[in-house]
């Protein structure tokens, strides 16, 4: 049975200028695998990820024919039931550590807060577990990082702290929204291998949201390509180069390549899509 099942998901916002449909009927199912969602800004990829956790505030509305997580209906679940899922069974790594970590709390307090409130651990146990989590994401000096405030960390460190925080409750599903876009390429490779190991070792399901088609292609098993709120193509990552849809092809071709031709880069023909 699949871990997550989404059928005909729609996210709608009421705005002054009328209804805006950010997601217009997205369906997918996810097992214990790495699913990539790719698209440009405004394609609805982030909204799709947030809708799974029902993290869309009014006036935004989430509608779907069905949305189930491990057999449980998450479309009609109460707020209380959702709270039991969020973090504990479905984790989410947000895009930017600058905005997603609490700026006036030390990393240590943020990491242990959940452990102490949710799991009722004592201070020493919680600290030990938090340090172990930081070590798991290859932070070399976890003691120093525990005492640091978010602004004292680099982008890569902050990102790893967020990943550590999400992994402490050992969720069955992790939604990672551009977890590496703020990182340097070498750090990016490190963070990806951490996520990869977690999928393999823990059998975690992963939804990897990114604008970088090539990165997703290398890292994920399956890719959904989104454009204007719709999935335009679903394809096995290894077969991405055989993509049929003109938008997918356009996204692939407009990237410069090392040693590629020097002429103008092919530009996405928006009229044809």
């Amino acid at each position: 049975m699949s871990l997550l099942e989404v059928r005909n998901l729609r996210v709608t916002f009421d705005t002054e200028t009328g209804l805006v449909q950010a997601v217009r009927g997205v369906s997918f199912s996810l097992g214990h695998e790495r699913l990539g969602i790719v698209g440009e800004s405004g394609s609805g990829k982030t909204m799709t990820g947030r809708a799974v956790l029902r993290l869309i505030r009014p006036p935004g509305r989430i509608e779907a024919d069905a949305m189930t997580f491990d057999g449980q209906d998450i479309l009609h679940a109460s707020e209380r039931e959702m709270r039991a899922l969020r973090g504990k069974r479905i984790g989410m790594v947000m895009q930017d550590p600058k905005y997603s970590l609490n700026p006036v709390m030390t990393v240590g307090r943020q990491l242990t807060e959940g452990l102490r409130l949710r799991d009722g651990l004592g201070r020493a146990d919680a600290t030990a577990k938090a340090i172990a989590a930081l070590e798991a994401v290859q932070i070399r000096d976890p003691g120093r990082v525990m005492d640091a405030y978010p602004h004292e960390l680099s982008g890569g460190m902050g990102q790893r702290v967020m990943i550590a925080m999400m992994l402490i409750p050992e969720p069955e599903l992790l939604i990672a929204d551009e977890p590496t876009s703020a990182l340097d390429v070498t750090v990016q490779a490190e963070v990806l291998s951490i996520l990869d190991r977690l999928v393999r070792d823990r059998g975690m399901g992963l939804i990897f949201i990114s604008h970088d088609l090539r990165l997703v292609a290398r890292f994920c098993d399956r890719v959904l390509v989104m454009h204007k709120g719709l999935v335009v193509e679903e394809i096995a990552a290894s077969r991405l180069l055989d993509a049929k849809h003109p938008y997918t092809k356009g996204l692939l071709n407009c990237l410069p390549r090392i040693g590629g031709p020097r002429g103008p880069l092919p530009v996405l023909d928006r009229a044809g899509i």
């Binding site: 970088d212 090539r214 290398r218 890292f219 692939l252 990237l255 390549r257």
Partner: peptide, 20 residues
């Protein structure tokens, strides 16, 4: 070399040359 290897461009295993 490590920058070159980690570059997103290399991530399709050098098969980008055959892209349509």
């Amino acid at each position: 070399r490590s920058l070159f290897d980690a570059s997103a461009d290399r991530m399709l295993g050098g098969t980008t040359e055959t892209a349509p």
